[in-house]
């Protein structure tokens, strides 16, 4: 069976041919099987976020190829990339990136607005993820009124609403205390059991060593290595 994510000699250079040119990734080659949980570790500026951005189709590589399932996505035009993002990925950002003045429900529904889904279907999906993440009671509250842990769960709910195959999480525990970090990993474990593929970057040794993780990679200066 072909890997779900296949990266071949992926490179990413920001501000190319300019004075502030940055080589964020150097010929990264790796693959992730469906249902696997893969963690990227490395210091700040090592290229973890750049690699997650490339895998998540948020930007295109400067060179190299990337396949998501059967699809070669590294040269897809923007509208197709957006569709791949919407249909294949769920993102959990380090800063959560929620719209704080909107309600929990509105935040969760955001990825579905451009999709041609019936309103009833949208609300049924929202109800399912809200229930799954124990947020049903809070759905009408504004995000700004929630605690940090609840906001984290809203971010996860938003990542799950489009029923993605792959969850991308960038430093998901960076702003959480140890209790909330454990709670998050329990949720991610459940998602893995449901067959989701999880790729995340972390500094946190607790996450890095967690039983949820199948394979570990370390990054340094844009180069990916399999960790010991």
């Amino acid at each position: 069976m072909a890997a779900l994510i296949q990266a071949h000699t992926l490179s990413k250079i920001y501000n190319r041919h300019q004075a502030d040119e940055v080589r964020a990734l150097s010929e990264v080659t790796f693959s992730v099987e469906a249902g696997e949980a893969v963690v990227l570790q490395g210091p700040s500026g090592s290229g973890k976020t750049s690699l997650l951005s490339l895998i998540g189709c948020m930007t295109r590589p400067t060179s190299g190829q990337l396949r998501i399932g059967e699809k070669e996505v590294s040269r897809l035009p923007e509208p197709f990339l957006a569709r791949v993002r919407r249909e294949t990925f769920g993102f959990i950002f380090q800063q959560l990136n929620l719209l704080r003045d909107l309600s929990v429900l509105d935040n969760i529904l955001l990825p579905l607005y451009p999709a041609d889904l019936k309103t009833a279907e949208m609300h049924s999906r929202a109800e399912r993820v809200l229930e799954q993440l124990n947020l049903l009671e809070k759905q009408r509250m504004k995000v700004a009124q929630l605690s940090g842990g609840e906001q984290q769960r809203v971010a996860i709910a938003r990542a799950l609403i489009n029923q993605p195959e792959i969850i991308i999480a960038d430093e998901p525990t960076a702003h959480l205390d140890s209790t909330l970090s454990k709670e998050l990993l329990v949720i991610l474990e459940h998602l893995k059991k449901d067959g989701k593929t999880i790729v995340f970057a972390t500094h946190d040794p607790y996450v890095y060593q967690h039983r949820l993780v199948d394979r570990r990679f370390s990054m340094h200066d844009g180069v990916l290595r399999k960790a010991e």
Binding site: M58, R83, F91, N97, L110, Y113, P114
Partner: peptide, 9 residues
């Protein structure tokens, strides 16, 4: 954020 979660331009 909207672009990242799958909105097209």
């Amino acid at each position: 954020i909207l672009k990242a979660i799958g909105w097209e331009t």
